[in-house]
Design a protein around this nucleic acid. Sequence first.
DNA 1: TTAATAAAAGATATTTTTGTCTTTTATTGA
DNA 2: TCAATAAAAGACAAAAATATCTTTTATTAA
Lengths: 164, 164
Amino acid sequence: MSFIDSVYTFAPETFADDYMAIFSKTCEYAMRAVFYVAQKSHEGQKVGIKEIAEQINSPEPFLAKILQKLSRERLIQSVKGPNGGFYFDAVSLNRPLADIVSAIDGNDIFTGCGLGLTYCSESNPCPLHDEFKKVRNQITHMLNNTTIGKFNMGLIKGKFTLNK
Amino acid sequence: MSFIDSVYTFAPETFADDYMAIFSKTCEYAMRAVFYVAQKSHEGQKVGIKEIAEQINSPEPFLAKILQKLSRERLIQSVKGPNGGFYFDAVSLNRPLADIVSAIDGNDIFTGCGLGLTYCSESNPCPLHDEFKKVRNQITHMLNNTTIGKFNMGLIKGKFTLNK
DNA sequence: TTAATAAAAGATATTTTTGTCTTTTATTGA
DNA sequence: TCAATAAAAGACAAAAATATCTTTTATTAA
Ligand code: FES
Ligand code: FES
């Protein structure tokens, strides 16, 4: 390939600098928002979408969609109009984070096969099955044992970050 | 909303029955393919893309792209022409599966923040940091301690599945 | 040295995820 | 009861991931 050619030839980046996280971006926004709203609820306040989006550094209209979904599923509370906003009642504050994750990302992270087989099963395991089960169990444990309100104190005391 | 209306009104499924896995589909295909080719290499054979795609149940042209990438990165060996195909040499068979994953999905799964913060850090942790670190470490351990050739015997003996 | 073979590369298409914009509905306080 | 407010809903747009098709290059064996 000549120099001139190379100037006009770009690698067909089918595999961009992709970076794959455990949770979808949607779910990451959801979790950050939930923790932020929980903290405010602990202080007895409701929060508007604009403030939430600013504080967790997420696109506002997109986050609105996410919270709408959580609201429809009664995982978060909201009221319209002046002094309205999002908040959590006492019951919701005690819900596990797992409820948020499964509402957004589904249950694959709790039950799915690491190699993408349709069903994860003991009788027909993929090679990674035994080790992957441990990973899945730890994720499940983490999400089941983290209530939505668990970090309220830490957040109020400034121990944790929710914005990049 | 009237009955007639409801007949023609469909919920705008912005959140389809999404299911989020730990690895991208691309990476799942890659891992399944790698294990399949490794097994064949152990038996001294090269395998064509068609056979691999059939055996691991993946779209053939898409898998071809994936293996091309791994080939460019010297993670898998290949030869063109008659009797050609993909295979692993002894060195590659001993590579950790982590090399495949990071080539395809990047390093976020090893180092990224569970809540999607730009950097995961001890000094500015997100609420999930402590627990998420454990998950990440277990994934890292799993992928570093699994060589590409680790399951050859199990696969030959039919203990494992690679197709759905 | 040629025909057949099989991977590599390139171009294109589809689907899903992520993100934006506009309109509607509910609530509140004046 | 009216104007202001804020979430809900709906329609639309952009980007990324997934998938397909065609052409090119390298290798082998006859
Ligand atoms: S079968 Fe793959 S993780 Fe269980
Ligand atoms: S800061 Fe979020 S996992 Fe470390």
